[in-house]
Amino acid sequence: PKGKEVMVPPGEHPLQYRYTFWYSRRTPSRPASTHNYEQNIRQFGTVASVEQFWRVYSHIVRPGDLTGYSDFHLFKEGIRPLWEDDANKNGGKWIIRLRKGLASRFWENIILAMLGEQFMVGEEICGVVVSIRFQEDILSIWNKTANDQLSTVRIRDTLRRVLNLPPNTIMEYKTHTDSLKDNSSF
């Protein structure tokens, strides 16, 4: 029920934070504008324990099996996966472009790293997104302070380690103010 705090059932392993799943789908024809983007995004589950996460995650279609323009987001409870959200307005994201067929594996690994607190950047992490597009898929991880270089570098290095990325993988950092300026995410 709305607003009811998600608790950790007895015997289950608590997560450092509660996380909410979101799903958004966009018809490529309609131009991206914040208004309709906000209309298209839906949250569908909040988890507080490792076992609750698996119960929700194991019922979600794998991103690699999605077609068209779809995004899955897993964000800390209370942070909306929108540039304008208070937690995001001074932030940015690391963007990793993946050739088709890799999204599901990398999505699971980046989630496990986030849930397991592997990034060691305090409160900086906001959430992770997998974006399914026609030519390529995109993985991104959002953090709160774009100009906190210590954190953004540590996030990048952790991503390389936990995702076991091929060395030539392109990783770029984009601030949300830049995304708002050119009204494009990537």
């Binding site: 392993h13 490792v50 698996w54 119960r55 690994n109 496990l112 849930l115 397991g116 607190e117």
Partner: peptide
């Protein structure tokens, strides 16, 4: 304060625990 840290193997091992079904 202390942080709750889990490595990837620990999290994957919980996937098939009865509580996660």
């Amino acid at each position: 304060g202390t942080r709750i840290i889990y490595d990837r193997k620990f999290l994957l091992d919980r996937r098939n625990s009865p509580l996660a079904q």
